[in-house]
Simulated scan of single mutants.
Amino acid sequence: MTITLNTPRLTLRRWREDDIEAMAAINSDPEVMRWIGDGSVRDRAQTAAGIAAWEEEWEERGIGLFAAELREEKQLVGFVGLMVPAYLPEVMPAVEIGWRLGRSYWGRGLATEGARAVLDFALRERDLARVVSVHHTGNTASERIMLKLGMRRERETVHPEFGIPLRVYVLETQS
Score class of each variant (00 low, 15 high):
residue 2 T to Y: 01
residue 2 T to I: 09
residue 2 T to E: 06
residue 6 N to G: 11
residue 8 P to Y: 00
residue 9 R to C: 13
residue 12 L to M: 07
residue 14 R to K: 13
residue 16 R to H: 10
residue 17 E to H: 13
residue 17 E to M: 14
residue 17 E to G: 09
residue 18 D to T: 10
residue 24 A to H: 01
residue 25 A to G: 03
residue 29 D to V: 08
residue 30 P to T: 09
residue 30 P to W: 06
residue 31 E to I: 15
residue 31 E to D: 14
residue 32 V to L: 07
residue 34 R to A: 10
residue 37 G to H: 07
residue 37 G to S: 11
residue 38 D to E: 13
residue 39 G to Y: 08
residue 40 S to N: 14
residue 41 V to C: 15
residue 41 V to L: 12
residue 42 R to N: 11
residue 43 D to P: 04
residue 43 D to W: 10
residue 43 D to Y: 10
residue 47 T to P: 00
residue 47 T to F: 06
residue 48 A to L: 04
residue 48 A to D: 03
residue 48 A to F: 03
residue 49 A to V: 05
residue 51 I to S: 01
residue 52 A to N: 07
residue 52 A to C: 03
residue 53 A to M: 13
residue 54 W to G: 09
residue 55 E to S: 11
residue 55 E to M: 13
residue 58 W to Y: 09
residue 58 W to F: 09
residue 60 E to V: 07
residue 60 E to Q: 14
residue 61 R to C: 08
residue 62 G to C: 07
residue 62 G to V: 04
residue 64 G to R: 11
residue 64 G to Q: 06
residue 66 F to T: 02
residue 67 A to R: 03
residue 71 R to H: 05
residue 71 R to L: 11
residue 72 E to G: 02
residue 72 E to N: 06
residue 73 E to W: 12
residue 74 K to T: 00
residue 77 V to G: 01
residue 78 G to L: 01
residue 78 G to K: 07
residue 79 F to H: 11
residue 79 F to G: 06
residue 82 L to C: 06
residue 82 L to Q: 04
residue 82 L to F: 01
residue 83 M to F: 05
residue 84 V to E: 14
residue 85 P to R: 14
residue 85 P to H: 13
residue 86 A to G: 14
residue 87 Y to Q: 12
residue 91 V to N: 02
residue 91 V to A: 06
residue 93 P to T: 07
residue 95 V to P: 00
residue 95 V to H: 06
residue 96 E to H: 07
residue 96 E to D: 02
residue 97 I to H: 05
residue 97 I to W: 00
residue 99 W to I: 02
residue 100 R to N: 02
residue 101 L to V: 04
residue 101 L to P: 01
residue 101 L to N: 05
residue 102 G to R: 12
residue 104 S to K: 13
residue 104 S to L: 14
residue 105 Y to N: 10
residue 108 R to L: 14
residue 112 T to Y: 11
residue 112 T to N: 13
residue 112 T to S: 15
residue 112 T to A: 15
residue 113 E to Y: 04
residue 113 E to M: 09
residue 114 G to F: 04
residue 114 G to P: 01
residue 116 R to Q: 10
residue 118 V to N: 03
residue 119 L to T: 01
residue 120 D to C: 11
residue 121 F to T: 02
residue 121 F to C: 02
residue 121 F to H: 08
residue 122 A to I: 02
residue 123 L to D: 02
residue 124 R to I: 08
residue 131 V to H: 02
residue 131 V to I: 13
residue 132 V to M: 06
residue 134 V to Q: 03
residue 135 H to N: 12
residue 136 H to W: 14
residue 139 N to T: 10
residue 144 R to P: 12
residue 145 I to G: 00
residue 145 I to Y: 02
residue 146 M to I: 08
residue 146 M to R: 05
residue 147 L to Q: 15
residue 151 M to W: 04
residue 153 R to Q: 12
residue 153 R to N: 08
residue 155 R to H: 04
residue 156 E to I: 10
residue 157 T to R: 11
residue 157 T to Y: 03
residue 161 E to L: 15
residue 162 F to W: 09
residue 162 F to Q: 11
residue 164 I to L: 12
residue 167 R to Y: 11
residue 168 V to L: 07
residue 168 V to H: 02
residue 169 Y to I: 03
residue 170 V to C: 03
residue 171 L to D: 00
residue 171 L to R: 10
residue 171 L to A: 05
residue 172 E to N: 06
residue 175 S to H: 09
residue 175 S to N: 10
